[in-house]
């Protein structure tokens, strides 16, 4: 048994919340610059250039790259040999979120109840937290702030097994087409296939925690990602929806076993503010 004080978790969460919102990272910047240089239409090229300049400026000044600093989503992989001391792990993550959003001058965008009152909680909590237990004595946390311009354009559908590969391809492309300019293209497309209704959605969210442009290790799914990428970019929605070659920066597919009667598919969209951070404690 390894002891881990929850204060350490809280402090790490506060730091990673700020870091993800202000620093998009070299991987994304390079990707955006390459897309900018490929664009032929002046307006589309200028939009991508503005995005690159924006993201560099945000990092330099340590301010949020987008005013929508999202709802806080965490994937927490807990080594089963850890004994947490000093309080509740869950509370430490919420507290670290509140601390980071306050200290980082990040926007508080969460309402405490969704339908009747919709009163802002003023500290961006609660966070959405997914826990998994893994072997070992380490705690691994990934954070992704989720803006709702793109979250609102996400969809889940229960396809029939007979719909097959074509059914999946058409559904994903259609979802991106319907979203059009709303999710702040260029976007990253997270696709979850299989599991149950909510499992597919969760897979699509985790797909958006991968490095941009990375591939599924199963070559069949990697090929599916490439085909989706091609068909989505052929939609020519383009940067800010103004047309052009760059509609998607990446398509990430994750899968899980499913029921003999089902083929659930979820499409979670993320804007070009493709932000994450992770830490191992």
């Amino acid at each position: 048994m390894r002891e881990l004080h929850v204060n350490e978790v809280r402090a790490a969460v506060a730091r990673m919340v700020i870091d993800a919102n202000c620093c998009i990272g070299e991987g994304m910047l390079t990707c955006l610059e390459q897309c900018r240089d490929r664009e032929e239409k002046t307006l589309s090229r200028n939009v991508l250039d503005m995005i690159v300049r924006n993201d560099r400026l945000a990092e330099e000044r340590m301010v949020a790259m987008c005013q929508d600093t999202g709802m806080a989503v965490f994937r927490v992989q807990v080594g089963q040999e850890i004994h947490f001391v000093g309080g509740s792990l869950d509370q430490a993550i919420h507290d670290g979120t509140a601390q980071g959003y306050e200290e980082g001058y990040l926007r508080k965008s969460v309402v405490g109840e969704p339908l009747f009152d919709r009163v802002n909680t003023r500290n961006n909590t609660p966070a959405v937290i997914y826990y998994e237990f893994v072997p070992g004595d380490q705690l691994h946390i990934t954070f992704a702030p989720k803006g709702f311009g793109s979250e609102n354009m996400s969809v889940v559908k229960m396809l029939k097994p007979a719909d097959g590969v074509d059914g999946v391809l058409n559904f994903v492309v259609e979802a991106v087409k319907n979203a059009g300019p709303n999710p702040c293209p260029p976007i990253v497309v997270g696709v979850g296939i299989g599991g149950t209704f909510e499992k597919a959605a969760q897979l699509s969210k985790f797909a958006l925690m991968r490095d941009v442009g990375s591939h599924n290790e199963d070559p069949r799914y990697a090929a599916l990602e490439d085909e989706l990428m091609e068909r989505i970019n052929a939609l020519a929605i383009g940067p800010a929806g103004l047309g052009g070659k760059t509609t998607a920066l990446g398509v990430h597919v994750e899968w899980f076993p499913t029921h003999i009667a089902g083929l659930p598919v979820a499409v979670n969209l993320c804007c070009h503010a493709y932000r994450h951070s992770s830490v191992t404690l």
Binding site: V47, N54, A58, A64, G149, N182, C184, A240, C271
Partner: peptide
């Protein structure tokens, strides 16, 4: 940012108004 529905487009024409878009996610620069 993004598209508007038909009733908004009609109201823009009816009133001689204008809808501007600006770049979503370029918040620090803006």
């Amino acid at each position: 940012k993004g598209r508007r529905t038909e009733p908004v487009r009609e109201a823009i024409v009816r009133n001689g108004a204008v809808y501007f878009i600006t770049i979503g996610g370029a918040a620090a620069l803006i």
